[in-house]
Design a protein around this nucleic acid. Structure first.
Length: 264
DNA sequence: ATTGCTTCCTGAGCGC
DNA sequence: TGCGCTCAGGAAGCAA
């Protein structure tokens, strides 16, 4: 489900709705949803909500953090109406003012980790740069891409290279670059690498502005869909704007959509 | 070291 | 209507 723009949209919503609230308790409704790295009875107030790749990090006043990954179908929905029924609730974060944040997840791949603020998240050691940071530039990407023989689409999906891209945005970025997703990284020219950097930043910013992309399950904190699906050019499309039929192939087990006429 | 296949799980959509 | 198959925004864990 959610890639960087969707995760950022969720975080923006959390900043509006739950920042400053005091956590009363965490309820796990399905085993293996919450991973307590240390036992905690009083988490404190929510002080800071940030993002790293596709991870949501919630810092609290008692120096703990909740690290949440939504994976494919995870949703964080702010509920004031306690009677409203959601079908796949895996955990609830209940606040002292009786409101709650519901963690709903159909496919149960999502996780919430609880740990001390100062402790490092092991998975973060394996993450590459933030695509919207200055660190993500032609020099960084060129150095990595030219050494790899894997298809450029697979490299863009690799969280160790760029943290936050997923299947939809990788497809859209390569479409805007007019690059064939099957092209090996080592075959890319300097001009191609410049385009990838430029359009990655551009597309992610546009998607965040439009509250992310909803294909099926993704919702923001207010249970609303995003709007960027209305601007997709290639993912899930039958035809390209040029009139040609969009090809759908498998790469590393994932669907890749691209236009063989426009993307070389 | 790199690449890519399989796996975790549930539900929707399709053909027969 | 219903069964069985394929597919789905992710990424860890393997095997080649």
């Amino acid at each position: 489900m959610p890639e960087l723009p969707e995760v950022q949209t969720v975080i923006n919503g959390l900043n509006n709705l739950v920042l400053g609230k005091e956590i009363k308790e965490l309820v796990e409704l399905r085993h293996n949803t919450i991973e307590w790295q240390i036992p905690v009875t009083n988490l404190g107030k929510i002080e800071l909500i940030t993002r790293r790749g596709k991870y949501i990090i919630i810092q609290t006043s008692k120096n703990y953090k909740l690290v949440i990954h939504l994976r494919m179908t995870g949703k964080l929905i702010f509920e004031t109406n306690l009677n409203k029924t959601a079908v796949h609730i895996r955990a609830e974060i209940i606040f002292t003012d009786k409101t709650k944040l519901i963690f709903d997840d159909i496919r149960t791949f999502g996780k919430i980790q609880i740990m001390k603020s100062a402790d490092e998240v092991e998975a973060f050691n394996r993450l590459g740069v933030e695509p919207l940071s200055l660190e993500f530039d032609e020099k960084y990407l060129g150095k990595i891409l030219t050494k790899k023989t894997a298809p450029v689409k697979n490299i863009l999906l690799d969280q160790q290279v760029i943290a936050g891209l997923g299947n939809i945005y990788a497809a859209e970025i390569l479409y805007r670059c007019k690059l064939d997703p099957r092209k090996p990284g080592s075959k890319l020219k300097a001009a191609d690498i410049n385009k990838i950097v430029k359009y990655t930043k551009e597309i992610l910013k546009e998607a965040i502005k439009n509250n992310g992309t909803t294909i099926s399950d993704y919702r923001n904190v207010e249970d609303k869909t995003g709007e960027f699906q209305n601007f997709l050019k290639v993912y899930g499309k039958k035809n390209c704007e040029c009139g040609a039929v969009i090809s759908k192939i498998k790469q590393a087990g994932r669907s890749t959509y691209f236009c063989e006429k426009c993307q070389k």
